[in-house]
Design a protein around this nucleic acid. Structure first.
Lengths: 145, 145
DNA sequence: CAAAAGCCTACTAATCCGATAGGGAGAATA
DNA sequence: TATTCTCCCTATCGGATTAGTAGGCTTTTG
């Protein structure tokens, strides 16, 4: 189970935006510098996040992106499902009676989806930020002591 | 979260073998017919499953494959991890201090892996077979009434 | 020996992913 | 008005990965 780069980058960007919330707009170029991401690729991801209702944007000088609501009101699951294109895409319509193997695979897939959804839906950006704070805090102690 | 075709096919084949256990050996050709899978592709998958210790094989006339132990002693998680090549491949060694975004992504990944492992490790082939039995049973009633 | 089956290697085809290029269009600022 | 700044949008490309094929070797059974 691996997240695509697209999702990876999107998460990293939205985490940065959550850190800065509710400050002024942040430009995509700055975001890509902060997390060291390919500029143009990130742009398309931010656009998807905006369309998904997670971000607000402002064009022109002084414009950029910011969260559309508080980090506690944004679910990581929602964000990831928006970014991850490959979700239960084709069901091939099952015109014929499914074989035992097909039923089994479908069952496994269902359980997996349920489990991941449950985990991801339980996480908000706020909680994610807290955890990151703890982690990077203890990290830095190791360096600064 | 999508399983690869390789994993899909492998599961379907091993479910068939579990249904027939502990009968005599089943040929890969018959398996590919039963589940309608590409013959040669399936062969390589069965080989991987044998190397993983899930199957026993017998060469020559009258040979084939069968489970190496009871369905209740084979975990679906083990099977899938064996078939799915792409598991936590590169960790890129993180030479530099990770950014907040990277920490967040790592955290999400950890939680996802934990959740999926938990679900898959809790399933055995036996349990899977039971569920399939229920499903296809109720399916068939709809057709035969 | 001949047939049956697994075993093994190499190759090709198709798909998807990550990334880039090149420009609009509209808002702020001078 | 002109200029700059930023998001917005489309198209395309290269490479990696996945899916599938071909062909033959080896071992067992009859």
């Amino acid at each position: 189970m691996r997240l695509s780069k697209r999702t990876d980058y999107g998460l990293r960007a939205i985490v940065q935006l959550a850190k800065l919330w509710p400050t002024q707009y942040v430009q995509s170029r700055d975001l890509s510098k902060q997390e060291n991401l390919p500029n143009k690729f990130l742009e398309s991801i931010l656009l998807a996040l905006r369309r998904g209702g997670f971000l607000e944007s402002k064009v022109g000088s002084g414009g950029g992106y910011r969260l559309s609501r508080a980090p506690r009101d944004i679910s990581v699951g929602d964000v990831i499902r928006r970014l991850e294109g490959r979700l239960s895409a084709r069901d091939t319509e099952t015109q014929k009676e499914p074989s035992p193997g097909e039923i089994a695979v479908r069952l496994v897939n269902t359980r997996l989806t349920e489990a991941t959804d449950k985990v991801l839906d339980a996480m908000t950006l706020e909680e994610l930020l807290e955890e990151v704070g703890k982690q990077s805090g203890s990290q830095q102690e190791m360096y600064y002591i």
